[in-house]
Design a protein around this nucleic acid. Sequence first.
RNA 1: GGCGACGUAGCUCAGUUGGUUAGAGCACUCGGCUCAUAAUCGAGUUGUCGUCGGUUCGAUUCCGACCGUCGCCA
Length: 507
Amino acid sequence: MPGRFYVTTPIYYVNDAPHIGHAYTTVIADALARWHRLVGDDTYFLTGTDEHGLKVAQSATEAGITPQEQADRNAGRFAEAWELLGISNDDFIRTTEPRHHAAVQAMLQQIHDNGDIELDTYEGPYCVSCEAYYAEGELVDGMCPIHNKPVERLREENYFFRLSRYEQRLIDWIESDPEAIQPVGKRNEVLGFLRQGLDDVSITRTSLDWGVPVPWAEGHVFYVWYDALINYATAIGYGTDDERFRTWWPAVHHIIGKEIIRFHCVYWPAMLMAAGLEPPKHVLVHGWLLLGGEKLSKTVHGQAKLTDIAPARLVEDFGVDGFRHHFLHDQPFGPDGDFSYEAMVARYNSDLANNLGNLLSRVATVVAKKCDGIGPAPDPDSPLAAVAADAYADTAAAWDRIQPSVALDATWRLIKETNAHLESNEPWKMEPGPEVERIMGDALEALRIVTILASPAVPASCQEIWRRIGLPGSPEDQRLPDAGAWGQYPGGLAVEKGDPLFPRIKA
RNA sequence: GGCGACGUAGCUCAGUUGGUUAGAGCACUCGGCUCAUAAUCGAGUUGUCGUCGGUUCGAUUCCGACCGUCGCCA
């Protein structure tokens, strides 16, 4: 039954260049969005950039441009990266847009009106070089942990969000919904943090002006994080189109990395509660990619970091779909995963070149030789029909559980079984006739179904397979579960061999 | 220091409420096939299930201690 699916990535801070950590999160969200479109859900996929704050203002000054110019330039880099990777976001939000300022001011004004934002005095250790406060525990031998310089004690009048009032409500929320924060290990981590008690948090600054102005207090801007989180509400109409907002909220899936769990599982839900709204339905937390292997991690200049690697660098070697496929199929969602060029080559050659790509090649060749290049219809009673039904069911269940690697395993079982089916029937030994046509029809039908099921992961390749086996339109226009039922390859279509879709990569 | 997680084949991991021969993929070996991108298909090897002890008729699965790795908090 069709539903509604709102999925978000974090908005990425424009001071960073897009790297494969960003791409990992974004590709997962994209694949989920594509899957939900396939099953007919009303889907909204949001990504974007976070553009306020001290660091952007500083680097703009260093570059001799305005903060807005700095933000424009780097937001463009993210947009280009996502275009390169075939990301199908419905919207790209930027926190400097007027619609976002309106939403931030509306939500925080609401919280202020409700009495949970109050003026207070902040006092603490302050590093002049960082232009930032630290907690006592963050200091190293009483010094700034970044600059290793003495800190000053500073007092400032700021507006505080009364986070401490939400401790029990947050615990109740998480305990009442086991699926709200996944995986369960991260959920427990948040509960443990909450049970230690919460302090109020300072959410405004007077020391800079590159931010969203506080509507009730001249000279104050909101601290960048409390502005940024609200983007998830802005994009679906908060503060500008309440009816639209109500259709999408709170049924959201926030895809995040584990480093920002506290903002998404504590501060953000509390802000929503304080504004009289529901907390997010799902916060899905993935681990980090740990860079290993020789090829990428060791350079003449020393140890490389994951965040040094641009997606385009890997797309050069593996193609867009090779890139996407690796992060979806090789990394289980949740725990940290090892990432290496060598593992990427192995996964690409095994799954894409040897299994999927080679299946298409051998099928096309036999159809050309034995069927005059015209793809025949499948056997309604093929043994592959049951395999395909299982593959669909397992694939769908895994996408629903946010387990792309499990989903792709299930899809790939149909590819392997189709290779085995060809092997056991040996159509290349037969004379042209009904028997060859039946077997090749089965293989084409399996490819048709695989192409639909795999399209969220490797969309461009699936589009090309779809075209080469003679089908009109696009696998993305298909609707599951109906399109996954056995027997719909019509027969009588011209099948094109073409060049290898995934040329093997030599290690 | 407090809390918690994890430690299963060469590698990456699955193992539901304890039960009889511990699984998958990749890699590897052998064999088949030759339509296919030296691809594919079949068969097969490897595990004291971190260590020690306890509960039990019986524990990878429960309990305790220890070793190791890691996370969050202080």
